[in-house]
Design a protein around this nucleic acid. Structure first.
Length: 931
RNA sequence: GGGCUCAUAGCUCAGCUGGUUAGAGCGUCACGUUGACAUCGUGAAGGUCAGAGGUUCGAGUCCUCUUGGGCCCACCA
């Protein structure tokens, strides 16, 4: 047979991927005969390009899917992409910016057309890249979160929640990204520490000369033109332009006399009042807080409570507006500088301290978030969260590793309402319409526009604006106002948060709210009812709140059932120094580069074997391990196939096979295989991929290749050897297939059998009757002896080509038979001329010696033996043994131990002592015999 | 400020519900073209399991504290 010496992944990967696709192996269809197993892919952004995180995430899913498919489940993996509102819009905006255009120049419709064109052209990049990985998604079901049917599901959900009173609209402080010019949810504005400053600013009192107490004196001094003042501390001095009060703690003696007094807000000369509230921390700063209701969430609440004015000083792009007086038109950070200069000039900046603070950052463009008062839409989360907490707490949904359960519950129990409106164009437009005629009659008419409200008096509570005043919510565009019949209707400009569509993914991908959809049209049940709830969700920790938690809520709310049973959360991919792998840091390893250099199998295997409990620390060299393993498998297969009789087929081999033909080593390798398989099964069912991968690796390489195949070289003409080599290889291909699908398929087709693909084979059964631990330990002794001989050889630097003569004394008579029967094995692997089994103990002339736990081994040596070296070696070993004996004897002397430890543990301890002592005595004897 | 997590060989990590002579891969050193594989083989060196207490007959494994990393959440201006 002509098989290349090296495995060359490039030549075969595309071929087999096409083969699987053409055969339709990836498709999952309703099949009442089979138990379903389904996974929905975490849909990558249409803007996405494959990175290591994707590679890891999808490798794991593919392992699960292929494994379950082989176990006889109807496996379905639904792929798709996410429209990624802000990210995609940003890309297309950048594109048109090269032509000097802003999206506003094109207008909404033309801009959206451009985005769709972009999507058509580049949107499936990541899909093609995923295929390179070998993933077995059912591509005929590929979904996009802005597909027509999907969009309908989104509107349906909005309407249902609105009608239930769970969606409301109102003016609140939200996270505003001045660069993207949209609101963001709390999750989209992660806090990051920044090195900033705390600025202490003097606010003069209108009525000078008030002293509250002696202790306060240093806080009140005369400054320039102004009278006495109060000092406030802030990290964002520019917001002072929007201040409408200063707050102090009512129990703060320093300021008690000043409560209710009026201050002159510097630079803008507005009169503001000193108010008292318990939320003010006396210890922080000066104990006096400037209150900026329109630009700080705390101040907002304070202002509601104290009925203060809300002054918005900023345009949506972060520049200051008309309310900012002389600073109007400046960018917020530029304004900060100028304001600080002006304050300094007026002797109003008391001091500046370095101050570390954490601020929200836009998760799309990393711009510092501005807390911004604007009219937005929200989902009330508490009612949705409650049942979603229950299902996790009761274990209906299980997290792997389990610690994520706590993280989930902690977040869910403190959940805040979800801001779902975005001031961008690419996305699902809110199914909200306004009737102009009704609005005209409404007192709140002016407030529907984008968040440009400049100054409003405080309004009522959080729910004040729900469902009133010309608002129509409907899945389809209404022709007339259902209240007044007017046709003067327009749709809400805002679109929904991308995650407002993603959270429906586990059922909207099955065409929910339709309940009758099935892919092949003639199924006895719908896809949704067959495949939902899905079996497992595999994802990264970053999107636990964004996505996983919300899917659980949506599943329960709209399907009445959990969306998945298991959640497996894998680690984050980092570089070798622990930094998160990212394009911007320049430390990313491109999976496609790894594939082309080492092969997709190498990539997959390395990722799987690195995917233990924590994060993954990767360096390019690490993938060599996978490549080497693939090559090892390749060559082992080559060896096995080269040594099968050309005409042999599996059937011929089996037919000529008799149980008693099996040699000890044959039974050993089978026993080891099934022992390993048993554990692999357990690990896979427990989402412990690295353990499963490493077990297979160790067995294949260090047991099957290093021992079995090496021994087989001397029995190649025996049918049983050929059969067992073949059998183990064949079974290994099956169980390795989910991890390394390409090479296993390639080798599969080189096997002399007729079955068309390894991918659709059954996962092997554990044959318990083949597992024999006692026999394994007998073989273990044989290996020990061989290793000891090799060790002795290397000590006297005996060249490999020189055959040695060895005598063995077995301490247990029963083992003599074992050694005699398998002496050929020791002779061959020990490179011996002959092996003698001694009847009595004692050192033969001209030998060097060593022991295993059960045998004394003497290697005949004609050269000069360095007696001292030999003696030291034996002594050292004895020392070690005696130390262990001491520890164990001490343990046995302890009556508590003997009384309380379980009998088998005590028995084993006794046995160990006996064995160790024996060995020690034999070493002692060897020592005596040396002279 | 709250929570989670980690600290085991030079590096990256295993070590499951406490009882091994503490393992693997990579790296290092020595030897090697034995009829698959140098992307290989054989052998070796290398660890007081971060530190201190405690629970227990027994702790790398459980508890507390200390030290040092990492991550997440949070409305300290």
């Amino acid at each position: 047979m002509d098989i290349s010496k090296r495995f060359n992944p490039k030549e075969i990967e595309d071929k087999w991927y096409r083969f699987w696709e053409e055969k339709g192996y990836f498709s999952g269809r309703v099949n009442p005969e089979k138990e379903p197993y389904s996974i929905v892919i975490p849909p990558p952004n249409v803007t996405g390009i494959l990175h290591m995180g994707h590679a890891l995430n999808n490798t794991i899913q593919d392992i699960l899917i292929r494994y379950q498919r082989m176990r006889g489940r109807e496996a379905l993996w639904i792929p798709g992409t996410d429209h990624a509102g802000i990210a995609t819009q940003n890309i297309v905006e950048k594109e048109i910016a090269r032509q000097g255009l802003r999206r506003q120049d094109l207008g909404r419709d033309r801009f959206l057309k451009r985005v769709w064109e972009w999507k058509e052209e580049y949107g499936s990049t990541i899909i093609h890249q995923l295929k390179k990985l070998g993933v077995s998604c059912d591509w005929s079901r590929t979904r996009f979160t802005m597909d027509n049917e999907y969009s309908y599901a989104v509107r349906e959900v909005f309407v249902r929640l609105y009608n239930k009173g769970l969606i409301y609209r109102g003016n609140y402080i939200i996270n505003w990204c001045p660069r993207c010019q949209t609101a963001l949810s709390d999750e989209e504005a992660p806090h990051r520490e920044i090195e900033g400053f705390l600025y202490y600013i003097r606010y003069p009192l209108k009525k000078a000369g008030i002293r509250s107490s002696r202790s306060a004196k240093r806080n009140f001094k005369r400054v320039g033109l102004y009278g006495d003042y109060i000092v406030v501390a802030t990290t964002r001095p520019e917001t002072m332009l929007g201040d409408t009060a200063v707050a102090v703690n009512p129990r703060d003696a320093r300021y008690r006399q000043l409560i209710g007094e009026t201050l002159i807000l510097p630079l803008i000369n507005r009169q503001i009042t000193i108010i008292a509230d318990n939320i003010v921390d006396k210890e922080f700063g000066t104990g006096a807080v400037k209150v900026t209701p329109a630009h700080d969430p705390n101040d907002y609440l304070l202002a509601k409570k104290h009925k203060l004015d809300f002054i918005n000083i900023m345009h949506p792009d972060g520049s200051l507006n008309d309310n900012a007086g002389d600073y109007k038109g400046m960018d917020r950070f530029q304004a900060r500088k100028v304001i600080l200069d002006d304050l300094k000039r007026n002797n109003l900046l008391e001091r500046v301290e370095p101050h570390r603070l954490s601020a929200g950052h836009c998760y799309r463009c990393n711009t510092i978030i501005e807390p911004y008062l604007s009219r937005q839409w929200f989902v009330k989360m508490k009612p949705l969260a409650k049942p979603a907490i229950d299902v996790v707490r009761k274990g209906k949904i299980r997290f792997y590793p389990v610690r994520w359960k706590k993280v989930y519950l902690n977040w869910m129990e403190n959940i805040q309402d979800w801001c779902i409106s975005r001031q961008i164009w690419w996305g699902h437009r809110l199914p909200v319409y306004y009737c102009r005629d009704c609005q005209r009659e409404s007192a709140e008419a002016l407030a529907d526009s984008l968040p440009t409200l400049e100054m409003t008096k405080s309004t009522g509570g959080r729910d004040s604006s729900v469902g009133s005043d010309g608002v129509i919510v409907s899945t389809s565009t209404p022709a007339n106002c259902p209240v007044c019949g007017s046709g003067d209707i327009y749709q809400e400009e805002d679109v929904l948060d991308t995650w407002f569509s993603s959270w429906l993914w586990p059922f909207a991908t099955f065409y929910w709210p339709r309940s009758d959809y099935s892919m092949d049209g003639s199924s006895p049940m719908s896809d949704l009812s067959y495949f939902y709830p899905t079996s497992a969700l595999v994802t990264a920790p970053e999107i636990l709140f964004f996505w996983v938690a919300r899917m659980i809520m949506a599943g329960i709310e709209f399907m009445g059932d959990i969306p998945f049973r298991d959640v497996y959360i894998h680690g984050t991919v980092r570089d070798i120094s622990g930094r998160k792998m990212s394009k911007s840091l320049g430390n990313a390893i491109d999976p496609l580069e790894i594939i082309s250099e080492y092969g997709a199998d190498a990539l997959r295997f390395c990722l799987a074997s690195s995917a233990s409990q924590g994060d993954l620390f990767l360096a390019k060299e690490k993938f060599e391990m996978g490549r080497n393993f693939a090559n090892k498998i390749w060559n082992a297969a080559r060896f096995v196939l080269m040594n099968l009789e050309p005409s042999e087929t599996m059937g011929d081999l089996c037919a000529s096979f008799k149980e008693n033909d099996l040699r000890l080593i044959d039974r050993w390798v089978l026993s080891r295989f099934y022992s390993m398989l048993k554990e692999v099964n357990r690990y896979l069912d427990d989402y412990r991929f690295s353990e499963a991968a490493n077990l297979m690796y160790a067995f294949f390489w260090h047991e099957f290749c290093d021992w079995y195949l090496e021994i087989a070289k001397n029995n190649l003409r025996q049918k049983s050897t050929q059969l067992i080599m073949y059998k183990v290889l064949e079974k290994m291909l099956r169980i390795l297939h989910p991890f390394i699908p390409f090479i296993t398929e390639e080798i599969w087709h080189l096997l002399p059998h007729a079955r068309e693909s390894v991918m659709i084979q059954r996962w092997p059964h554990v044959q318990d009757e083949m597992i024999d631990k006692d026999m394994e330990s007998q073989v273990g002794l044989l290996f020990e002896i061989i290793k000891t001989i090799r060790n002795l050889r290397s000590q006297i630097e005996l060249k490999p080509e020189r055959k040695a003569v060895v005598s063995i004394y077995l301490h247990a008579k029963a083992r003599q038979q074992l050694i005699r029967e398998n002496s050929d094995l020791i002779v061959n692997l020990g490179r011996l001329e002959s092996l003698e089994v001694l009847g009595v103990s004692g050192r033969p002339q001209g030998t060097i010696s060593s022991t295993t736990g059960e045998a004394d081994i003497y290697l005949h040596f004609s050269g000069l033996v360095d007696i001292n070296k030999e003696r030291n070696r034996i002594k050292e070993r004895r020392l070690g043994l005696d130390k262990m004996v001491k520890v164990k004897e001490q343990r046995l002397k302890n009556t508590e131990f003997v009384k309380k430890a379980p009998p088998p543990v005590v028995a084993k301890e006794r046995e160990d002592v006996k064995k160790l002592k024996d060995e020690s005595e034999r070493l002692e004897k060897m020592l005596r015999e040396l002279h």
